[in-house]
């Protein structure tokens, strides 16, 4: 009984971490895509857009890593 509960808890943890990583991936993908569109519209603002993109991506990445560390 106790063993199976532990197994299920472990499985749920892993699934949760997977969901967070998927979310982070989608988020970073959207940031990248939007940055591409923005650069296409305003090529002269490329530098500013790139900087903002990297910061936002780094912040989201942190959440993904936090999820990985919660299960590791």
């Amino acid at each position: 009984m106790g063993e199976s509960v532990e197994l299920i808890a472990g499985a749920i943890k892993l699934i949760g971490a997977g969901l967070v990583v998927i979310g982070a991936g989608v988020g970073i993908g959207r940031i990248g895509g939007s940055a591409m569109e923005a650069i296409a519209r305003q090529p002269e603002a490329t530098n500013k857009i790139q900087t903002a993109m990297l910061i936002a991506a780094a912040l989201i990445e942190g959440i993904g890593f936090a999820a990985l560390f919660a299960v590791a």
Binding site: A58, L59, E61, G62, F65, A66, L68, F69
Partner: peptide, 10 residues
């Protein structure tokens, strides 16, 4: 904390 984890994990 996020700074620490980001660099380490990457």
């Amino acid at each position: 904390f996020a700074l620490m984890i980001r660099l380490y994990a990457n």
